[in-house]
């Protein structure tokens, strides 16, 4: 693995390796001293062109717990606000000797461009690009699902198990969701059966070629699901005729108390955050015992530790002791 640009870059074995490594990382985080010396002397740049405090802090914590030097570069208050291009920013980072660049950008494909245009030599990690992908989110979601639906790697086993046969619903604004795209690709690789549930306006033209099913009917889809992932509905969709009103959206596609009762006992409720409580998810659902929303955040740090570790330090078993 040279870069992590798309969840589709991960084949089955590599995806499992990341999940297993993330679990090892999580185990080290139970210790009193959480810091590992693994990436001492390496520099990780968090290059955030879009506000995302949660993701940036998660990557920052991950890099620091591996003892890397972390530079946070955000568009606000930097030369980017004065019109400096992605290229010049990248050349600057290259000159400073970045070993890995974690990039969040509003333009789909910007991480791909950064990795292939020859501007930087380090590893590039996509921390969310436009409406394209958010692969570390999909990985942390997979860790969460595996924990609840499959179980951890058994001691002595060569590798943990995948998500074969697990039924996952992804509900909401698929059209604009990088989380949905990465999850569909990764969950398919891991053997899960994915159904996207959304109003037809929020499914992209061409979705029928994706390795998943689609439905317009949430109530009919809920029974039998092992995991229900609710996607955030952005405020700017409200006035672009994707749906008539927030209330109608909530009635047809929101996860509320009534729909919670349609779920099987073991079904988990997920959300990548930040939530619009009362719109796509009610407080009942967000705060219920089956909700993994807070756990997802915690898994984000160990997954990002695993990704940075595998990109910068190589194979899995050395160094995590």
């Amino acid at each position: 693995m040279r870069h992590l640009l798309s969840a589709g870059d991960l084949d089955h074995d590599t995806a499992l390796l990341v999940l297993d490594t993330a679990e090892q990382m999580a185990a080290t985080q139970q210790r009193e001293i959480k810091k590992l010396p693994t990436l001492r002397g390496r520099t990780v740049v968090n290059l955030f062109f879009e506000d995302s405090t949660r993701t940036r802090i998660s990557f920052e914590a991950a890099a620091k717990r591996l003892s890397a030097d972390v530079i946070n570069f955000s568009a606000k208050g930097s030369s980017l606000a004065k019109g400096e291009s992605l290229k010049d920013t990248a050349l600057t980072l290259q000159a400073m000797g970045a070993d890995a660049v974690v990039i969040r950008h509003q333009a789909s494909g910007a991480p791909h461009r950064l990795a292939t245009a020859g501007w930087v030599h380090g590893c590039v990690v996509n921390a969310g690009d436009g409406t394209h992908e958010h692969p570390t989110q999909a990985l942390l979601d997979a860790v969460t699902m595996r924990h609840h639906l499959v179980g951890m790697r058994r001691p002595g086993a060569a590798a943990g198990r995948d998500l074969a046969g697990r039924r996952v619903l992804i509900v909401g604004d698929v059209l604009h969701s990088r989380v949905a795209r990465s999850n569909v690709l990764l969950l398919h690789t891991l053997g899960a059966d994915v159904t996207l549930v959304a109003p037809p306006t929020l499914l992209p033209v061409g979705v029928d070629s994706w390795p998943c099913a689609t439905s317009y009917d949430l109530d009919a889809s809920l029974p039998g699901a092992d995991a229900v992932m609710m996607l955030r509905v952005q405020a700017e969709r409200m006035h672009a005729a994707y749906f008539p009103s927030a209330r109608e959206y909530s009635r047809r596609y929101g996860l509320d108390a009534r729909r919670l009762r349609l779920l099987d006992e073991h079904t988990i409720v997920m959300h990548p955050g930040p939530m619009n409580r009362g719109l796509e998810i009610s407080a009942d659902a967000a705060d219920c015992a089956r909700s993994t929303i807070v756990e997802q955040v915690g898994n984000g740090v160990s997954v990002r530790m695993a990704v940075l570790y595998l990109l910068l330090a190589g194979s899995a078993d050395e160094g995590i002791r």
Partner: peptide, 17 residues
């Protein structure tokens, strides 16, 4: 940003139908 179809859906680029 590009032709609207299967690929625009995958690349996350707004489609030009």
């Amino acid at each position: 940003q590009m032709h609207e179809g299967e690929l625009s859906a995958v690349l996350g680029l707004a489609g030009w139908p």
